[in-house]
Every structure is written in C-alpha cells, then in structure tokens.
C-alpha cells in the first residue's frame, strides 16, 4: 500500500503506475525497487523540510515574511520534486528496464512528475497552515 494508491493522480498510464510500484520484469508481482516509495519519501521529506526551513529554519527571518517568499518556497521545492520524480520514472522507459507487458512513454512520466509537483505543492500548503502557527517571524504568511 502506497500513498499514491490512495490519491487522485494526473492520468498517467496505469502501466507506469505498476512499474513505479516495482512490478518485476516477468510481470508476476511488485518485487522490484519501488519508485513510488522513493518518491513518496521525497515528497514528504522535501515538503516537510522546506516548510520547516521556511517557518523555523533559515527562512524564519523577517526578510522572508512575505507571501512572495512563501510562494517561491512552495513552487521551487515542488518543482525540484517534480523533476526528480520525472527523472526516476523516465529511467524505466527504455525496453528492458521495465516489464515488457507494461506500456508507457515519457509523457506518462511527465504527468507523474506533474502529479508529484501538485501534491508537493498541496502538502506544502497544508503543512504551512499548521506550522505557521508556531513560527516566530512567518506566523502570518501566507495569511
């Protein structure tokens, strides 16, 4: 069970989804390295780290107590996560790198990257609404 099983996703191919879940080359079961788990950790890790950094770390300065700084934070970090997710997914596109019964292309990987981007953004926003309450300088950002 993975977080990506439970959430709404951009409609990238289900085959990519199975590949990301680690479907073995013979197609029997998900026994290979799970990119989903890795990306889930990246999404959670980067979101929490960036929001912690913004509200309690290096960005916890009056200089950054403005909505543009916050927006920058919740766009750049998801962008990095999106690019990383895309890279991890696209590495499975060449034949031989995935189960031959799965059919997906780079556009699927791009949609997966967008999904990761979107959810990191949402997660950053959600985390912001909680973490901001305990911040010294950024407690009023974004609202």
């Amino acid at each position: 069970m993975n977080i990506f099983d439970s959430i709404i996703r951009f409609s990238y191919s289900r085959d990519l989804l199975e590949h990301l879940k680690g479907l073995s080359l013979n197609g029997e079961a998900c026994t290979s390295q799970s990119v989903y788990q890795m990306v889930t950790l990246i999404v959670l890790g980067f979101s929490i780290a960036s929001i912690l950094n913004y509200y309690f770390g290096l960005f916890n300065r009056p200089l950054f107590s403005r909505i543009f700084s916050w927006l920058f934070n919740v766009v750049v970090v998801p962008f990095i996560v999106g690019i990383t997710s895309y890279s991890l997914a696209v590495s499975g596109v060449p034949s031989g790198a995935h189960c031959s019964y799965l059919h997906f292309f780079k556009t699927d990987c791009l949609l997966f990257g967008l999904t990761a981007f979107a959810y990191t953004t949402v997660l950053c926003i959600v985390l912001s609404t909680t973490f901001k309450l305990f911040s010294v300088n950024n407690k009023k950002v974004p609202f």
Binding site: I8, F10, S11, R14, V122
Partner: peptide
C-alpha cells in the same frame, strides 16, 4: 487549493479515457 485538487482528478482534460 480547490482548483489544484480539481486539476489532479482523472476526469480532467489530461485523462486518456478508457485506457
């Protein structure tokens, strides 16, 4: 936020229906 969530739904313009 609502827009973002809507954008992620499978029924949007990106969806390749019936796949």
């Amino acid at each position: 936020l609502i827009f973002l969530i809507q954008a992620c739904t499978t029924g949007n313009a990106f969806n390749q229906n019936g796949h």
